[in-house]
Every structure is written in C-alpha cells, then in structure tokens.
Amino acid sequence: MADTLLRFRDDAASTAPVVSLASLHDAGGNATAVRIEPGEDARLLLPLLDRLELVEVSFPAYTDGRGYSAARILREYGYAGELRAVGDVLVDQLSHYRRCGFDAFLPNQPITREAAEKAFATWPEVYQRTVDGRTPIWAARHG
C-alpha cells in the first residue's frame, strides 16, 4: 500500500491510526487521523481542525464527486494537515483534486509521481479562485 501513496507535502506522513468519523469521539477523543465517506458531513470536523493531521476522503467511485466539496470546505476553514484522496482516484482527475485542496493520493491503481505532476500541469491557467492559491484569470487580467 505504501508504494501507491503519493504525497506532495514536506512533513512526515502521519502514523496515527485512521478512525472513522463515527468513532472519532470515542477512544478518549484524541484521534488525529480520520477518514470520511462520501455521504458524511465534512463540517463535523471543523471544531477539530487544529488537532487533525490526516484526513482521508474516500472515493469509492470516481464518479461520486462529493469528496471534492468535502476537501474544499476543510481547506476553506483553515485545515492545514494532510488531505488524502483514497480509492478510485484516476490520473485524469488529479488536477481537479489538487485544486480542491488534496495534497496526497492513495489510488487503487498506482499512479507514478511523474504522471501526477504532468496531470497537475494540465491547465496553464485557471478560471476560478479555489483553495490552491493559483491566480484566477480574472485576477491576472485586472492586476
């Protein structure tokens, strides 16, 4: 499994056990790594953002786009830890994942780092401001 993990962060990967959202408040309430499923509300994590160092967002099927919103919401509220897309994660979607704030990927089918970096560079520019810090075209136009 470790060899399919792609990380685009400088810090060391979390070694904490990953718990489900439901069990986040169990176990003494100090878990630092959590996994959320498509139907789960990412906003429930907002009170805990300072404590968390890894959030896994599950993509059972690439066609289920709820995880994009989950990721963006977490980043919009200031989450700075690792945000990992897990599951049916495809190379042709990587640039969108990145724009929504994911900085780590654990795909079912391995993706090379080179292919991932090529995917991130798909769009020379972007039309929207998201959480990835890229300058939208409208801002470039108007300085």
Binding site: G65, Y68, R99, W123, Q128, W138
Partner: peptide, 13 residues
C-alpha cells in the same frame, strides 16, 4: 462560461 469551465469542484455532480 468562464467560471464553469473546468470547475474543479463540480466535475462529478
């Protein structure tokens, strides 16, 4: 048109 073009969050609605 510009906003919706390659919008990363809404590609798999």
């Amino acid at each position: 048109r510009q906003w919706s073009t390659f919008h990363p969050e809404f590609d798999y609605l």
